[in-house]
Design a protein around this nucleic acid. Structure first.
Length: 315
RNA sequence: CCUGACCAGGAGACC
C-alpha cells in the first residue's frame, strides 16, 4: 500500500492522473484498497494543476468508499479554493470542516496570510497573524516566512526584520526560505551589501545556500548593475555544485543587457542554448529592450525573430 | 522499527 502510495504521489505531482488511476486499479486487483494517502495525493495533484472540480468530486466519493477525509485533505482543498481565487467558497468550505480541527491548524492561517500577501494586503495579513496568536495558536516557520515575504514584496524592510526578531524570540528557528525572504527585502531596496551580510550570517548558522538563494543574490546584484558581484555569486554557486537554471541565466542576461554589455549577454544566451536550456520570453525580453533603447531596430527585430523561431510567443 | 499525502522563497518593459 505504501509503495503504491509513493508511486501514485509521484504521478500526481507530474499531473499524470491516468497513470495514477492505472496504479490504483492494479492495487485493487491485488485486493488492496486506496487509503487516505492515495486520495490526498490525487486531490492535491488536481488542485495544483487547476482541476479543483475533480478534486472536489474525489472528496465526495472517498467518503462513500469508506475513507474519511482528514485534516490534510481539508487543508489541501481549502488551499485549492483560495489559489483559484475562490476565497468565499473556500471559507464556506472551511465552515463545514470544523470536525477535522482545521481551525486549529497553522496551515490554515498560512494559506490565508499567503493569499492576502499575494494581493499586497499585508495589513490584513498582519491582523490574521495577531488573531492567530490571540487564539492561542503558535505561528510556525511557514507562517513567519510567508508574512516576511509579504513585507519584503511591499518594500517594508523594517516590518520584515521586526517580525524576524519576534520569530527568534519565540524560539522558531529560521530556515533557508526565511533568510531568502529577508535578503529579498534588502535586495528590493538595492541594499545588496546588507544582503551579503545576511548571506554570510545564514551560512554561519549552518544553513546551505540553495539555487533560489543564489539566484536572489544574483538578481539583486544585477538590478544594482553590479555584474562583478553577480558573476562572483554565479561562480560560487557552481563551485558549490549547484546548477543555475533558466531563471538564474535570465537574471544574468538581463543584468548584462542593462549594463550595456551585449557581447556578454549574447555569450550567455548562446552558451545556455548549447547547454540545452529552454529560453522563454523572460530570457529574450531584456535583449530586445536593450536594442530598442539603443535605437538598434535591426538587432531588436533579429532577436524577436530568433525568439519566435524557437516557438516562443511574446507576452 | 523504518517508509507515502497538505501551507511559505528567485528573473523581464511601462507606470
Amino acid at each position: 500500500n505504501v509503495s503504491y502510495g509513493i508511486l501514485v504521489h509521484g504521478y500526481c505531482c507530474l499531473g499524470e492522473f491516468s497513470k495514477a488511476y492505472d496504479l490504483l486499479e492494479e492495487m485493487m486487483q491485488n485486493s488492496m484498497h486506496p487509503d487516505v494517502f492515495h486520495y490526498s495525493s490525487l486531490i492535491s495533484g488536481y488542485c495544483k494543476f487547476g482541476f479543483l472540480k475533480e478534486a472536489l468530486k474525489l472528496y465526495e466519493t472517498m467518503g462513500t468508499n469508506g475513507v474519511m477525509p482528514n485534516l490534510v485533505i481539508c487543508i489541501t482543498l481549502f488551499d485549492g479554493f483560495v489559489k483559484e481565487g475562490l476565497v468565499n467558497e473556500g471559507f464556506e468550505f472551511l465552515d463545514k470542516q470544523h470536525a477535522c480541527g482545521i481551525m486549529g491548524s497553522s496551515f490554515t492561517y498560512a494559506i490565508v496570510i499567503n493569499c492576502l500577501c499575494k494581493e499586497n494586503k499585508t495589513k490584513k495579513a498582519w491582523e490574521i497573524f495577531k488573531l492567530m496568536e490571540a487564539r492561542g495558536l503558535l505561528p510556525d516557520i511557514v507562517v513567519y516566512s510567508t508574512l516576511i515575504n509579504g513585507f519584503a514584496k511591499e518594500y517594508r524592510i523594517k516590518e520584515a526584520f521586526t517580525l524576524f526578531g519576534r520569530m527568534m524570540k519565540h524560539g522558531v528557528v529560521p530556515n533557508i526560505i526565511t533568510y531568502t525572504n529577508l535578503i529579498n527585502s534588502l535586495c528590493n531596496y538595492g541594499r545588496t551589501h546588507d544582503a551579503f551580510h545576511w548571506f554570510k550570517e545564514l551560512t554561519m548558522q549552518g544553513l546551505i545556500p540553495d539555487k533560489i538563494l543564489y539566484t536572489s543574490m544574483i538578481s539583486g546584484f544585477c538590478r544594482q548593475r553590479d555584474m562583478q558581484m553577480a558573476w562572483k555569486f554565479y561562480q560560487m554557486m557552481e563551485e558549490n555544485g549547484l546548477l543555475p537554471d533558466i531563471v538564474t541565466w535570465s537574471c544574468l542576461i538581463d543584468g548584462f543587457c542593462k549594463s550595456h554589455k551585449m557581447d556578454k549577454a549574447h555569450f550567455l544566451e548562446d552558451k545556455i542554448t548549447r547547454m540545452g536550456f529552454v529560453p522563454n520570453v523572460k530570457t529574450y525580453t531584456p535583449l530586445i529592450i536593450e536594442y530598442c533603447n539603443k535605437g538598434d531596430w535591426d538587432q531588436a527585430m533579429k532577436m524577436y525573430g530568433e525568439m519566435k523561431k524557437k516557438g516562443i510567443s511574446p507576452d
